[in-house]
């Protein structure tokens, strides 16, 4: 592959450069991320590196306890143990690399700067509230409230618009999944 890609000057780097030059991104609305030397996400990399290291250790310990088996007949813990070891090795390499790259923490890019970080948090809270309330009040009521809340969340739309779309989507989803595909939605105390 290296032979195939490099003569065309199309390493992964150049793919990224093309994206950056043209300010193109895969997100909607378009996220324009400039990736320059001082903007690397080194601090975040270090944190995630330690999380991977920790996770690798946990996998190793847990799979060791399951049963590694013998060489001729590997037990159920054997492959997970190898996976854990690999994760430890990779996170170690990753951490070493992130520490070798010197960084000035004051110039570190804040991944949430200029963004409305409260919005995803609210969406997540709404999602958890949804699965907690669903068995209590039933599919139709909770889903309708969920849709109305989300409709108002990022850019308040007109009430009539939100209510129409919410009712339509709840009705359509109930007809398709609840009635046609026989999905057993929780009914809750309201019995519908």
């Amino acid at each position: 592959m290296a032979v195939l890609l490099n003569p065309l000057c199309l390493s992964r780097k150049s793919c990224q450069e093309i994206l950056l030059e043209k300010s193109l991104s895969l997100h909607w609305p378009p996220l324009v991320q400039k990736r320059t030397g001082e903007n690397r996400v080194v601090l975040y990399d270090r944190i995630s590196g330690f999380i991977w290291l920790f996770l690798g250790l946990i996998i190793c310990v847990m799979s060791y306890r399951i049963d590694l088996g013998e060489a001729g007949s590997p037990g159920p813990g054997f492959i997970p143990f190898l996976t854990g070891c690999l994760l430890i090795l990779l996170s170690f390499i990753f951490l070493v690399k992130s520490f070798l790259l010197s960084t000035d923490s004051r110039r570190e890019k804040n991944l949430w700067k200029g963004l409305r970080w409260d919005k995803p948090l609210l969406v997540v809270i709404a999602l958890f509230a949804y699965i907690l309330l669903l068995p209590v009040f039933g599919y139709l009521v909770v889903t309708l409230l969920f849709m109305v809340f989300l409709g108002k969340l990022i850019q308040p739309q007109k009430w009539t618009m939100i209510i129409i779309i919410s009712i339509l989507s709840v009705a359509a989803s109930y007809l398709i999944f609840g009635l046609w595909l026989n999905c057993q939605f929780p009914k809750g105390v309201l019995k519908f």
């Binding site: 909607w28 609305p29 969406v123 999602l127 949804y130 699965i131 669903l134 068995p135 889903t143 969920f146 849709m147 989300l150 409709g151 969340l153 990022i154 850019q155 739309q157 618009m161 779309i165 919410s166 989507s169 989803s173 999944f177 595909l181 999905c183 057993q184 939605f185 929780p186």
Partner: peptide
């Protein structure tokens, strides 16, 4: 189609799609 209208639908579809697999929350 504005995104504020589109994204609740995507979320709803994800939830129902997943729930319908085993009827499991």
């Amino acid at each position: 189609i504005p995104y504020p209208i589109l994204f609740p639908l995507i979320l709803l579809f994800c939830i129902i799609g997943t729930f319908s697999l085993n009827n499991s929350l």
